[in-house]
C-alpha cells in the first residue's frame, strides 16, 4: 500500500470544546492509484490532507506510508518519508523573492543536507539544475525561469509549484484544491500538468469541484463530518451519495464518459 490509514481520529481544542475533525477514517491507497476526496467545507478534507502529508499527527489511529507507521518514525526518517510525498497546495506558496528556477529547485530540499543547501544557494549541482530545467520545460515555463516568484502570474506560479513537485521526484503526490485559486479556463490545462507530475505515482487530491473530480479521478471518497461517507469508483457515484455529501445543494451529476478522463491523463498511462 502507498497510504494506509486505520481508524484515524484527529481532534482540535476549539472554543466549543474538543472538535473531531477526523472521526475514525480508514483508507487504503494502492501504489499508482488516483483518488479524489470530496466533501463540503468543514468535512475534514484539509485535516486529512495534513495527516496524509505527515505534518499533522493523528490523535488516534495509525497512518502508514509504504508500509511504515509514520507516528513511530524518528524525525530524520520522517523527513525521508516526506521527500517521497510531493505536495501541491491550494495556493502555489512560492518564496516571493526567489526566481522561478530557484523555487522549482526547492523540490530538492528534502534531499539536501545543510551543507548541500548552502552549496545550492551559491551554485546548484548540475544534476539538480538539469532536473529543474526539465521540469520547467515540462510545465512550459523555461522562458520565465529568471523571473521572481512575485512577478509571475497566478497560473505561472501554480505551474512552478507543479515543477517543484516534479523536481522532488516523489512516489506519491498529494494535491489540496490545487486549482481553486485559478481561473476556470486554466484548470483543464493545469490538471493536465498535474497528471504529468503524478505520472507513475500515487495521486490523492482533495477537491470540492464535483464535476471536475468525477471527470478526472477513477476512485472517489466522500468525506463528511470527519467520516468516510462512501469510497467507490467514479462510475458508481450516485446523485443520492452526493446529496448526502452536500445536504443543501446537491449538485446534479453529469454522466462523464470514461474516455474524457483517459484523455486528460493520457500521458499517465
Amino acid at each position: 500500500m502507498s497510504f494506509s490509514l486505520h481508524g484515524v481520529r484527529r481532534s482540535f481544542d476549539g472554543r466549543a470544546g474538543r472538535v473531531a475533525a477526523l472521526d475514525g477514517v480508514s483508507l487504503d491507497v494502492a501504489p499508482g492509484e488516483r483518488l479524489v476526496v470530496l466533501g463540503p467545507s468543514g468535512a475534514g478534507k484539509t485535516t486529512l490532507f495534513g495527516v496524509l502529508n505527515t505534518t499533522l499527527r493523528p490523535t488516534e489511529g495509525t497512518v502508514r506510508f509504504e508500509g511504515r507507521d509514520v507516528s513511530r518514525l524518528s524525525q530524520r526518517a520522517l523527513r525521508a518519508t516526506r521527500r517521497r510525498i510531493g505536495t501541491v497546495f491550494q495556493q502555489p506558496r512560492l518564496v516571493p523573492s526567489l526566481t522561478a528556477r530557484q523555487n522549482a529547485l526547492l523540490g530538492r530540499v528534502g534531499h539536501w543536507s545543510f551543507a548541500n543547501a548552502v552549496r545550492a544557494w551559491v551554485r546548484p549541482s548540475p544534476e539538480d539544475l538539469e532536473r529543474v530545467d526539465a521540469a520547467l520545460g515540462a510545465v512550459g515555463l523555461l522562458h520565465r525561469a529568471a523571473a521572481r516568484g512575485d512577478e509571475l502570474s497566478g497560473g505561472e506560479q501554480q505551474r512552478v509549484a507543479i515543477a517543484r513537485v516534479l523536481v522532488q521526484e516523489p512516489t506519491a503526490v498529494l494535491a489540496d484544491e490545487p486549482f481553486s485559486s485559478l481561473d476556470p479556463s486554466l484548470r483543464e490545462s493545469m490538471s493536465e500538468l498535474l497528471g504529468v507530475a503524478a505520472a507513475g505515482r500515487t495521486l490523492v487530491a482533495v477537491m470540492h469541484d464535483v464535476d471536475f473530480a468525477l471527470r478526472h479521478f477513477p476512485r472517489v471518497v466522500g468525506l463528511a463530518a470527519g467520516r468516510v461517507l462512501f469510497d467507490v469508483p467514479a462510475a458508481q457515484v450516485t446523485p443520492e451519495m452526493l446529496a448526502a455529501l452536500y445536504p443543501r445543494e446537491a449538485p446534479e451529476r453529469r454522466q462523464v464518459p470514461e474516455r474524457e478522463w483517459a484523455d486528460a491523463f493520457a500521458c499517465v498511462r
Binding site: R82, I85, P96, G107, V109
Partner: peptide, 28 residues
C-alpha cells in the same frame, strides 16, 4: 509561513528550510 510549510512538507530539515524558506523572505 506558507512557503516554509511547503519546504517542511517536502522533507527539509529546520536549517535547510530556514536558509531557503525563511531567510529569503526575511532578507529585506
Amino acid at each position: 509561513a506558507d512557503p516554509v510549510e511547503v519546504l517542511e512538507a517536502a522533507g527539509a530539515s529546520a536549517p535547510v528550510w530556514s536558509l531557503w524558506g525563511a531567510w529569503p523572505q526575511a532578507r529585506p
